[in-house]
Design a protein around this nucleic acid. Structure first.
Lengths: 338, 338
DNA sequence: AACTCCTATGCAACCGATTGCATGTCAAGC
DNA sequence: GCTTGACATGCAATCGGTTGCATAGGAGTT
């Protein structure tokens, strides 16, 4: 690292100290705790620092203080539209607090997530794990090293932010029932997923209470293609409406229906989940809003809060969801009279 | 930083050394230069490290070597579907090389981008600026401090990766002309954007050559809403097809057309750009594929290459694009006979 | 003049790695 | 049997800051 080309002349604290005729400690304090020094000294040191272009080295500072002003965010898949808004939300808050954000992509693999956490640990003050695939033991281990906030993963004792799709799902069901639907398909997602379990459970429970019938049809993995492929089975169920695990699946289903010439919402109603496609399609999708951006913000705020108070509390922050009615739901069609 | 609660037990090199009964130097070398050690020692050290969950502290390493193993990626807007695949691509490569990635979001504002670059500089070895809004002078200044790779921004002397939508745009135009379209709208994006200039120029040039007419209608900022709002003006132009700045704008336009009962592709053809929505809609969008993921990979590879050789070459990497024909384009409709 | 008490500053240990040089060991060579 | 060299490992300085504790000097008190 000493060859000619790489020798970037970055001034250090020693050079400034020598020029100012003070000790390193004094230069350091001129920047971090000026109130400890005489006004004159602070001015002199800062002037010299400015002259030579000295800026305290963040890396060295972090090594001795443990505060790097960084945090890490690990998501399963950046390219899944569910995550970008969440990332955005977290970043927004981190930015405001002067934090830099590392982004990690686990590819839904615990192993990769594990590796990322390891790599980040020494460089961040805390981490946000979204839909973590790590097992509880591992999460607890890491949480002992650095504050960790989970999103959409419910581990007792670890601060977590959960998007409660139940409220929105229930509203969606009510909405469909109001429109006369009595037999409804749930197009389900990954069975290991917390979100899927939660959605399925809420739906089942509410349906029983209100006396309507739920038919489960899987779409795994939850993609446009899976939704599209599930169309036949969904139609075969004789249901008049479907509630999909997420918006992607819902879109696939919409395509499948369109291809068969089945009018939405005229003859079939579709509800998505997460509200990540926004209104980027036509007809705009009725969906359960997941407030992912907010989840990101809350998680970041929570993490930085934990850093400040240095005490771990058992926080379980639940974000309720709600139904956004757009154009893919309507009254049940009158029966065919052939 | 020594109080009970904040004493996080992150294992250090000393602990591993003690457990393995070797010196710190040996542990260090087990990770950085295993060929200097006996096979047996390397295995033993690594096993112990794994057991206690030791990972070399990047910060400490960076302090002594000057290599932090970090790079920064700054994009205008994470939530814009164009960027996630690109981020993904860059990250993939960075990961493989053992680099951690900082993600910054400039909100398309030069000021914020400037601030982010400042914050990252001391913590990274190099940066990737995507669709940078900084002025050339500023970019050159930063490039002197740290290697910088630009994506979709063409500054002479700074290594850059450009997605050449021209080839795809020309193919799209040819496709439309083949289908009988002679008057085509270009729904334009941000005038300051390199991509927009390039697309517009390619279109104008090719149209002139082939003797068809291009009408420009702005959609700024390039969003679904803007595309939707531009529908009236686009129809007023009497064109029979539109080529949109990006897929989002194209979707907005599709919605606007659908709402007016105008069949696509029956009475109007639409071509998007970037291919970021994939086939998530119906009818699936004909679009110019931008290969964003590849761009990210190339940019990251290029950056890490520059770090290795420590010499800045003037690289201008151009990725060609191509047309993906799906369901929103078709032959021009026969004239109305009222 | 002697005694406090502050205030401004310096000393030196520390954060957790890396690395040039020194050292110990053992086998081969003469 | 002694030298030589190769190999594996350890020692200790170093990177650039921060910070607890020590101290010098000056003002205020008696």
């Amino acid at each position: 690292m000493d060859d000619e080309t790489s020798r970037r002349r970055v001034p250090t604290i020693d050079q400034v100290a020598a020029l100012a005729g003070v000790s390193r400690a004094t230069v350091s304090r001129a920047f971090t705790r000026p109130e400890m020094l005489s006004e004159a000294t602070v001015q002199r040191v800062k002037a010299i620092a400015r002259d030579v272009g000295y800026v305290p080295n963040q890396v060295a500072r972090a090594l001795s203080t443990g505060r790097h002003g960084n945090l890490a965010l690990i998501v399963p898949d950046v390219a899944n539209p569910f995550f970008p808004p969440l990332i955005r939300g977290a970043q927004l808050r981190a930015d405001e607090a002067g934090f830099c954000v590392f982004l990690g992509n686990s590819d839904e693999q615990a192993g990769r997530e594990d590796m990322l956490v390891g790599r980040f640990t020494s460089q961040v003050e805390g981490m946000i794990l979204v839909s973590s695939r790590l097992d509880e033991e591992r999460i607890r281990l890491y949480a002992e090293r650095r504050p960790i906030v989970l999103v959409n993963r419910d581990v007792a004792g670890i601060p977590r932010v959960l998007i409660d799709s139940a409220t929105g799902i229930i509203a969606a069901l009510a909405h469909l029932i109001d429109h006369g639907h009595r037999r409804i398909v749930y197009v389900s997602g990954p069975s290991a997923s917390w979100s899927n379990q939660q959605r399925r459970l809420a739906l089942r429970r509410e349906a029983a209470k209100r006396g309507v019938e739920i038919v489960a049809v899987p779409a795994r993995p939850p993609t446009y293609e899976a939704g599209y492929a599930a169309t036949a089975q969904i139609l075969a169920s004789k249901a008049t409406a479907a509630l999909a695990f997420d918006d992607l699946v819902a879109q696939g289903l919409l395509a499948g229906l369109a291809e068969r010439g089945i009018d939405v919402p005229g003859r079939f109603s579709v509800v998505g989940c997460d509200d990540v496609l926004g209104t980027t399609t036509y007809p705009p999708l009725t969906t359960v809003s997941a407030r992912c951006k907010e989840a990101g913000q809350v998680a970041a705020d929570l993490l930085m809060d934990l850093l400040k108070v240095k005490a771990m509390r058992d926080v379980r922050y639940v974000l309720e969801s709600h139904l956004v009615v757009r154009g893919t739901t309507g009254p049940v069609a009158p029966p065919d009279r052939p």
